[in-house]
Simulated assay, not measured.
Amino acid sequence: MNPVRDNRYAILLRGVNVGGITVKMAELRDVLADLGLRDVRTLLASGNAVVTTDWDPAGLKERTEQALRKAFGYEAWVIVLPVYRIAELAGAVPYAGDDPAVHAYVTFSTDPAVLDELFEMGAAAGAEQVRIGPEALAWTVQKGSTLESPLSKAAAKPRYKSATTTRNLRTLHKIAAAE
Rank of each mutant, 00 (worst) to 15 (best):
N2E: 15
N2I: 12
R5E: 15
Y9N: 08
Y9H: 12
I11H: 03
L13D: 13
G15F: 07
G20W: 02
K24G: 04
D30E: 15
V31G: 10
A33T: 15
A33K: 04
G36R: 15
R38D: 13
R41Q: 14
T42W: 02
L43P: 00
L43F: 06
G47L: 05
D56I: 02
P57M: 06
G59L: 06
K61Q: 15
R63Y: 00
E65G: 09
E65N: 12
Q66C: 01
L68D: 05
I79L: 11
R85C: 01
I86L: 01
G91P: 06
Y95P: 00
D98V: 07
A104R: 05
T107C: 03
S109W: 06
T110H: 05
D111M: 01
P112K: 02
P112Y: 12
A113T: 14
V114D: 03
E117H: 10
L118Q: 03
E128Q: 07
Q129C: 05
P134W: 08
P134F: 02
A136N: 08
L137H: 09
W139L: 09
K143L: 11
K143F: 05
S149T: 00
P150A: 15
K153L: 13
A155I: 12
A156S: 14
L172W: 03
K174A: 05
K174F: 02
I175N: 01
A176P: 00
A176W: 03
A178M: 08
A178H: 04
A178I: 07
E179Q: 07
E179N: 11
